[in-house]
Amino acid sequence: MDIIWFMTGNLGLIGEHALRHVSIVFVAVGIAVVTAVPIGIAITQSKAAADVVLYFASMMITVPSIALFGLMIPLLSPIGYGIGYVPAVIAVILYSQLPIIRNTYTAISNVDPALREAAVGMGMSTFQRLRQVEIPLAIPVIMTGIRTAVVMNIGVTAIAAYIGAGGLGTFISRGISQSDPRQLVTGAVSVSLLAIAIDLILLLVQKLLTSKGLVEESRQ
């Protein structure tokens, strides 16, 4: 009961933290899309480059987030961003690379070679081929990678509260340090709900971006 009272009494604060949380994730994943999608497309040209890039991106994701935040404090302190919003965004950008690069790479490599040949043979430039054929065909898989990145990093961002980035993790860190289950549960529940809600919204976006010609008919 206490917990529900706490939640209803602090709706404004929850909203504020949630907004901050979403802002970190969206800004970071947004930047990650701009870097990771071109990287994913570029490495389809060379198997060796793809192996190296995917290896480093996989290593990146094995570094525990709390360690990454710790590492960034001495690195970013000289320019005045040792803690707070900026290192949180940087961490999320790094963690987002693997799912987005890997899915983009897989999707573009799996485009039917016959379609690529038809596109080239009909006189499309590389850029036209990507824009008109390969990326539209890859969109569902690329979007799945982006959704994975977003959901995963909503969790990572919760930990960024420890370096003063704000967000819903603030409830969790305070709940632990003050032994206050009301704040702890409020933080945990709202992080989970946020992840589910945003995943559903992105699923809708994915459907809107996918050509009707690619959707499998479930009913005939």
Binding site: L115, V120, G123, G213, L214
Partner: peptide
């Protein structure tokens, strides 16, 4: 080559219609 290909009709065995286009 790109101008050349646009001036030559090209049909392949796998047909190669783009599934994302009408």
């Amino acid at each position: 080559p790109i101008q050349l290909r646009r001036s030559i009709g090209y049909v392949i065995q796998q047909i190669g219609l783009f599934p994302n286009k009408t």
